[in-house]
């Protein structure tokens, strides 16, 4: 078990006053709250801060913690001295949150009865709905276009018959609804944490993200594709093949098209009651002048069609 330096976690001195500890905690809690801070380790950080504050805000727990001594370093292997806490009595927080948010260090010192509220915690009671769980899955853009079934395995923390926390793999087959967009969540009722006292299970929320696609960039229901075309296709107009999520289609490029122009393929985006569109962004690719004949053509173009593409820039 690793020693936790709660003073270091909150960035305060060991002789800091209660007010100072409270201010340090509030400031860090705002900074690392997982709803506000999108960094991957924000939730872990937030819990560590919460645990440190749980101990240091309570004069009894703080005195007991200080009693262990100052010779320990953060992360050092730690065994509590026997009867270290004799003479201290800890009152339970009364929340009874069985979700195992505290470190082994904390639980060894203060027991699971000392738990208070924490992120995702629920107000307790004799009978309570289980915790809602949140997970993320990565899917392919095509899965959203056609709909799919994806198998996911989550680690569920449950309390076994002896009251210990155990991690159980939980395998689910989840239907990916047609037309789901990145950032949307699927709610699976009663697939979350165990209820307490016969309460129902919590729900499971699965947030969807897309693997990067080699061709298509999604924006909500719309799909963007950059389409390379030749100068003559742009100037004269042409019908060219274009890949879509539904396969290849033919698209008309109007005469006089320019690089950067956006053409719309209606309803070729992600499906839905209002389906998205596919936007094709034209990119004119200029052939190299790598033969005498090609060079002559370019020189002829310069002579026949002189133009200043920078006139709008005033140069």
């Amino acid at each position: 078990m690793e020693y936790k330096d709660y003073y270091k976690t909150l960035g305060v001195a060991r002789d800091a006053g209660q007010d100072e500890i409270k201010r340090a905690y509030r400031k860090l809690a705002r900074k690392y709250h997982p709803d506000v801070n999108k960094a991957a380790d924000a939730e872990k950080h937030f819990k560590e801060i919460g645990e440190a504050y749980e101990v240091l805000k309570d004069p009894e727990k703080r005195t007991a913690y200080d009693h262990i001594g100052t010779r320990w370093q953060e992360g050092q292997e730690f065994r509590p001295p026997p009867d270290w806490n004799a003479g201290f009595e800890f009152s339970g927080g009364g929340f009874g949150d069985a979700s195992g948010h505290y470190s082994d260090f904390f639980e060894e010192l203060f027991g699971r009865a000392g738990m208070g509220s924490s992120f995702h915690g629920r107000r307790g009671g004799m009978r309570a709905k289980g915790e809602d769980h949140h997970a993320k899955i990565m899917i392919n853009l095509e899965d959203s276009f056609t709909g799919a079934v994806q198998t996911i395995t989550l680690q569920l923390t449950e309390v076994d018959a002896t009251g210990r926390l155990v991690a159980l793999p939980h395998t689910l087959n989840v239907r990916i609804p047609k037309g789901i967009m990145a950032g949307q969540s699927i709610r699976l009722a009663r697939q979350g944490g165990q209820g307490m006292g016969g309460g129902p299970r919590g729900d499971l929320y699965i947030e969807v993200a897309f693997h990067p696609h080699p061709l298509f960039k999604p924006d909500k229901k719309d799909i963007y594709l950059e389409l390379p075309i030749t100068p003559w296709e742009a100037a004269l107009g042409a019908t060219v093949p274009v890949p879509t999520l539904d396969g290849r289609v033919e698209m008309k490029i109007p005469p006089g098209s320019q690089s950067g122009q956006k053409l719309r393929l209606k309803n070729r985006g992600l499906p839905g009651t209002t389906p998205g569109d596919q936007f094709v962004v034209l990119k004119v690719v200029v052939p190299r002048a790598d033969s005498e004949a090609a060079r002559e053509i370019y020189e002829k173009m310069a002579a026949v069609m002189p133009m200043n593409p920078r006139s709008a820039l005033g140069v």
Binding site: L172, Q184, S185, I186, R187, A189, Q191, Y205, T273
Partner: peptide, 18 residues
Amino acid sequence: RDENYLFQPLTGMILDDQ
């Protein structure tokens, strides 16, 4: 139980604007 899940994929509610 897992085998059952294989045959009956869970259908969730999609939290979208529709």
